[in-house]
């Protein structure tokens, strides 16, 4: 009894959407980062599902790379948040608008 790949796609889409909503709705920069991780995770799930579905190992290899990049991104991103917090005493992204034109 195998699960049709469409179901995985649907689950991935839902998780991705939740992640996107998190990025767009939350004001806490750390939670936004977590949401980004969730979106990456949704993408990874799709990679693995199709890897299985198509019988190709490359999908899993790509997931490996994505996880690596995500780890690096989180490290740098959290460092940035720490630095921003030191200067602004806040990680509310609605209070950070240095790039205002």
């Amino acid at each position: 009894m195998t699960v049709p790949v469409e179901w995985y796609v649907a689950l991935s889409a839902i998780l991705f959407s939740i992640g996107a909503l998190g990025v767009l709705l939350r004001r806490n920069a750390i939670i936004i980062f977590m949401s980004v991780e969730l979106m990456l995770n949704a993408a990874n799930l799709l990679f693995v599902a199709f890897s299985r579905y198509l019988g190709d190992l490359d999908g899993q290899v790509l997931v490996f790379f994505v996880i690596t990049v995500a780890a690096a991104e989180v490290a740098v991103g959290l460092a940035l948040i720490v630095v921003i917090f030191r200067t602004k005493q806040s990680i509310n992204i609605d209070e950070i608008n240095l790039m205002k034109g």
């Binding site: 699960v3 995985y8 689950l11 990874n44 799930l45 693995v48 599902a49 890897s51 299985r52 899993q60 997931v63 490996f64």
Partner: peptide, 10 residues
């Protein structure tokens, strides 16, 4: 879910 998808390493 990865385990069910036969991806133990991932």
């Amino acid at each position: 879910l990865y385990l069910t998808l036969n991806a133990p390493f991932i």
